[in-house]
Amino acid sequence: MKTLLCPLNGIRNIDEFIYGGEYHVEPDRKQVDRKAWAEHVFFDTNSAGVVTEWWCHTPSSFWFLADRDTVTDEVINTYPFSIDPVER
């Protein structure tokens, strides 16, 4: 992966982006128990395969989501957060 398609700015050099971790739905803070919270904070699926992740285009501080294959390093899709990745 040498470039990435930013949903706001178009194709940019990969150096302009930072990786922000796997996408999770945050548990409801009022109801969550310790175990579920610990898993939300520390644990990820860390799969070898397609994973939905946060990325940020640093010059414009624009955060978005990417579906990326963590074995081949191919990016399948990038899209703004407003599109819920679970619903898509």
Partner: peptide, 16 residues
């Protein structure tokens, strides 16, 4: 670790 752990149903706080 995550891949093999997953075979045993174990979730790990690991990033590869």
């Amino acid at each position: 670790s995550s891949v093999v752990g997953n075979m045993a149903g174990i979730k790990l706080p690991i990033h590869t």
